[in-house]
């Protein structure tokens, strides 16, 4: 790895290592690991907000209930605006994705925590689920008409095959960019935080390093929320291809 010999010992990627929760040993598919712990903490946090927070069903909401209602209204409007009226019945899926990504991102910002969404394995699963779901849904709802998306009828006839190839490639790159964007953003942010944390051990630059960490931490908070938003809105955009009108 990077640093050999003396001097700084910065291992910015060590925070992403998947370890068994109890004891040492190999990681089997069923082993409870730190990934498991933080995934379940995300589930618990979502349960606290969305279920416990709304338990009183008050007409005049409490603080946690208004947050839950705010998220509900926000995502509901997003699905309705972006994916159209037909997309509203997939609202629970979009809501699940949004809440999971948001809470995983935010929980990952707790010091010493593990950021599940910084792992390509996690985000690629999410993105592939969206990709496969949207593709199958589009084929089921529109049949061959779904493939008309790749055949740009407004372009000159000679250009259409080339455009079709480009569209096809961009369609299949979607899950890649969808997942790498989320994982990359979080990984980069956390790695940078870790690098600055390493610099903080040098007395000379530690005030600067700590100030920079504070600033980057604030930026990362913003990034966490924005990436969750972007992940969700892209899901809605993809969903529109499957359920929306071809000529909108």
């Amino acid at each position: 790895m990077a640093a050999e010999g003396g001097g700084l010992q910065i291992h910015p990627m060590d925070q992403f290592i998947v370890k068994p929760l109890f004891g040492e040993g190999a990681v089997h598919w069923y082993t409870p690991t730190n990934v498991t712990l933080w995934l379940m903490l995300a589930v618990v946090a979502i349960g606290l907000l969305m279920v416990v927070g709304t338990r009183r069903r008050a007409v005049v909401p409490s603080r946690s209930q208004s947050v839950a209602e705010l998220i509900y209204g926000f995502i509901h409007n997003m699905v309705e605006d972006v994916a159209g009226h037909d997309g509203v019945k997939y609202f629970p899926y979009v809501m699940t994705l949004f809440l999971f990504v948001l809470f995983a991102n935010l929980l990952g910002l707790i010091p010493m925590s593990f950021t599940t969404t910084s792992h390509v394995a996690v985000t690629a699963t999410l993105a592939l689920a969206v990709f496969l779901g949207v593709t199958l849904l589009g084929l089921a709802r529109k049949g061959v008409g779904f493939l008309a998306m790749f055949w740009v009828s407004s372009a000159p006839l000679a250009l259409r095959p080339i455009l079709a190839v480009i569209e096809l490639i961009s369609y299949f790159v979607r899950p890649v960019s969808h997942s790498i964007r989320l994982a990359g953003n979080l990984m980069a942010g956390h790695a940078v935080l870790k690098v600055f944390a390493g610099f903080a051990s040098v007395a000379l630059v530690s005030p600067v390093a700590i100030g920079a960490m504070t600033a980057i931490y604030a930026l990362e908070l913003l990034v966490s929320v924005i990436q969750a938003y972007v992940f969700t809105i892209l899901t809605c955009v993809y969903l529109k291809d499957a359920v929306g009108d071809a000529h909108h």
Binding site: A2, M13, M78, V82, I180, G184, A188, V230, L234, V237
Partner: peptide, 26 residues
Amino acid sequence: ATLFVGIAFAEALGIFSFLIALLLMF
């Protein structure tokens, strides 16, 4: 919403280059 989608698309390419850097490093 369009703004954020546009930013996301533009940013994705930067993330790709970052990814390539990470892949080269590790």
